[in-house]
Design a protein around this nucleic acid. Structure first.
Lengths: 337, 337
DNA sequence: TACCTATATGACAACGATTACCTCCCTATG
DNA sequence: CATAGGGAGGTAATCGTTGTCATATAGGTA
C-alpha cells in the first residue's frame, strides 16, 4: 500500500540532493563520511530500495541474464539451470529462462526477446539458429554444449566425439563387435558428433558397421522404447548398445527390463537418475551438466566484468564411470564378423 | 552496433508525433487508418522494437513473472518450471527463476528481489518464510504445493494428507502393519501433512505406530540411504516402507537394491525417473508437477488479466499408480502386533 | 451564422535513477 | 593578498515510453 521510497525522498529527509544520495548508493568517493553515514542511516530507516527498472533504463543494461536451453524439464538441463542460477544469484543477478523445445523459431524468439530486454548477458545452448546477428552486438554471450552456426563465439562443451570414441572403445575392449548405436537426429550437432566418434572408433578397430544397428531418429524415451525390441528381433542381433542421449537411454533401459534382456551390454553417453540403482547399473560417461553450467556462468560473469571473450571451444574432460552394464562381455563362441 | 530504433525515430520518419506512433503501437482506436498503416510500415521497415525497460518504468510493471522453487535441479520442480515457462512464453511473458535450496533467507531475498523488479506476478513454492508483507501489495501471487505462513493467499496443491492416507491404506490393505514412514523434517509443511496422513490412516486401522519406524530427518538421497539398513537391523524390522519425498525414495531404493532387500514393500509419495523400470517397479501417487504448474500459471495469468484472487486451496486430485513394489504382501505367519 | 461534438493529432510532463556540468568553499602557495 | 586546485554537493538533462490535456478540423444542429 505504502508508496515505494525514492532517491528524492531520502534526499529530502536528509536535507541533501538526489545526487548525493545517488553517490552514496553507488559508493562514489566524493562524499564526506558524515553525509554518507547520515544518508545511509536514513536509507535503511526509510527502507529504500533501488528501482532496478529505472536504473536499467538509464544505464542501458538490465541486471539479468538470459538462459536458453532446449528443455528445462530434462534433468540434464535442469541441473545446468540450477548451477547457473545459483552462481548468478550469489551476485544478485536474476536469471530468465527459456525452453526452445528444440524448435528453431522459439530459439530465435527467445534470444531476440532477451536482446530486447537488454539483458546483461546470455548463456545459450544453441541449436540450428543463425547467430550471425549477434556479431555486431557487444552483449556477452557464452554458448554451452555446442557451437553456434555462423558465428565464432565462446563455447563451453564436452568433447562429444572423443567421448563417443571412449565409450565405443570400452565396449570393443569387452569383446563386442556387434554394437548398436542409438541416437537423436543427425541435424542436432551433438548427436552428429557422437555418431562420428562411434564411427571413428569402429573404423580404428577395423570393425565393419552393420547398418541395421544404426538408429538415428530416436528423439525421446517413447520413441526409443520400441527400438530395442526391433533390434533384438534381427536375425543377427547386436550384443552391445551405445546410447547417445539420456532420454533415449531411459527408453531403451525400460525396454530391456520389460522384456528381460539385461544381458545385452549397455553404455549411455549421459547419466540419468537411478542409472546406478538398476540391475545391472548403467555405465556412463561422467559429464555433469553442473560442470558445464558452472564453467559457463563463471565465464559469463568475467565477460560482464569487462573480460575479453575467449573465442573458441573449452572442452570439459570426460571419464567413464563403470557400473556394470557396460562391462558385460560379448558372448563367447561368436566369431568376429 | 546500430543504435536501436525509438518511437521518435519512427515519428520523424513518418512526419507524425511520438504519441501517434505510440498509439499505433498499442492499438489505440483514435488513429486514422491511413496514418496507422503508414506508421506500421515504417515500423517494420526500420525494425522498431519496443524498449520493454522503458515501458516497464512508465507503466510500473515488468512483463515478467517471478518463479520461486526450492530446487530447480530437482526433477519435480524442473518439470513445474518447464510447464510455467511454456505457458508464459506463449503470452510473451518472461520467467525469472530462483532456487531457495530450502533456505529461508534465500526465499525471502528472492521474493524481495522480484518485488523490487516490479514483476507482473509471482508463483511461489513457499517454505517457512513470513509472507505477511505481501498482504499490502496488489501483486498477483499464486502459491504452489503448500500454503504460506501468515497470509491467506491463493494456493494450488495436492492434498498431502489425503494422499498419505491413500498410500498408507494401500500398504495396510496388502497385509502390512509394520510400516515405516520416512520423511523430511516436520517443519516443512508438506512433510508434516504427509506424516499426519500416515498417522491418521494407521489410527483408523487401529494399528499402533512403532516409533523405531518413524524417520523424520532424511532430507536427501544421501541422508536417506543409510536409514534403510538401520531399519533392517532392528530386532523387529518393518515389512513395508512409505517414503514421503522423491529424493528420499531414491536413496532408499538405492539401499534396497544394494543390500538386496527388494522384498520389502515400498511406496513412494512422489514419482521419479526410472521408478517404473526398477525391479520391482515403484508404486507411487500420481501427482504430476506439470499439472500443478499448469494450474498455477493459468490462475496467475487470469489474475494478471484482472481476475479476482480465489483465496483458499485448490486441490489437485491424487491417484495410486500400482507398479509392484507397493503390492508386495506382508510375510504371512507374522502375528499382528 | 453560431455553436457543439466527435475525431485525429500533438505538446509536454512523468516514471526514478544516472550523469555531465556547474557552483560553492576551503586551503595552500607564490 | 590573490588565485589555483580540489573536495563536497547541487541542477538539470537524459533514458524511451505512456498518460493528461490541449488543439485543430470536419460535420451536424439550432
Amino acid at each position: 500500500m505504502s508508496k515505494p521510497v525514492r532517491l528524492i525522498d531520502v534526499a529530502q529527509a536528509t536535507n541533501t540532493s538526489i545526487k548525493t544520495v545517488s553517490r552514496v548508493l553507488n559508493g562514489h568517493p566524493r562524499v564526506s563520511d558524515e553525509t554518507r553515514t547520515r544518508v545511509q542511516e536514513k536509507m535503511t530507516e526509510l527502507g529504500y530500495q533501488v528501482d532496478v527498472v529505472a536504473r536499467s533504463l538509464r544505464t542501458g543494461v538490465d541486471n539479468v541474464i538470459g538462459l536458453v536451453v532446449p528443455k528445462i524439464g530434462d534433468p540434464f538441463f535442469a541441473e545446468l539451470v540450477e548451477e547457473v542460477e545459483e552462481e548468478a544469484n550469489r551476485r544478485g543477478i536474476g536469471v530468465i529462462v527459456g525452453s526452445t523445445h528444440w524448435e528453431l523459431d522459439r530459439e530465435v524468439d527467445l534470444v531476440q526477446g532477451f536482446k530486447q530486454r537488454r539483458v546483461a548477458g546470455m548463456i545459450i545452448t544453441p541449436q540450428d539458429a543463425d547467430y550471425s546477428f549477434v556479431k555486431d552486438s557487444s552483449m556477452p554471450i557464452v554458448f554451452v554444449d555446442r557451437a553456434p552456426r555462423n558465428v565464432k563465439g565462446e563455447v563451453i562443451r564436452v568433447d562429444d566425439k572423443k567421448g563417443a570414441e571412449l565409450a565405443t572403445n570400452h565396449l570393443i575392449k569387452h569383446g563386442h563387435t556387434k554394437i548398436a548405436f542409438i541416437g537423436d537426429k543427425l541435424r542436432i550437432k551433438t548427436s552428429k558428433l557422437r555418431f562420428d566418434g562411434f564411427k571413428s572408433a569402429m573404423a580404428a578397430a577395423k570393425i565393419a558397421i552393420n547398418d541395421d544397428y544404426i538408429i538415428n531418429n530416436a528423439e525421446n524415451a517413447e520413441l526409443a522404447e520400441p527400438v530395442f525390441e526391433e533390434l533384438m528381433k534381427l536375425d543377427n542381433p547386436p550384443t552391445a548398445i551405445f546410447c547417445a542421449k539420456s532420454e533415449i537411454s531411459i527408453g531403451i533401459v525400460r525396454a530391456m527390463h520389460r522384456i528381460n534382456r539385461t544381458d545385452i551390454a549397455f553404455f549411455s553417453f549421459d547419466d540419468f537418475t537411478m542409472a546406478d540403482s538398476l540391475q545391472p547399473a548403467v555405465t556412463i560417461l561422467d559429464h555433469s551438466p553442473r560442470v558445464l553450467g558452472r564453467a559457463a556462468i563463471k565465464r559469463l560473469l568475467e565477460r560482464m566484468d569487462g573480460g575479453a571473450p575467449r573465442v573458441g571451444e573449452t572442452n570439459i574432460p570426460l571419464k567413464i564411470i563403470e557400473r556394470g552394464s557396460g562391462e558385460i562381455k560379448a558372448p563367447s563362441g561368436k566369431a568376429r564378423k
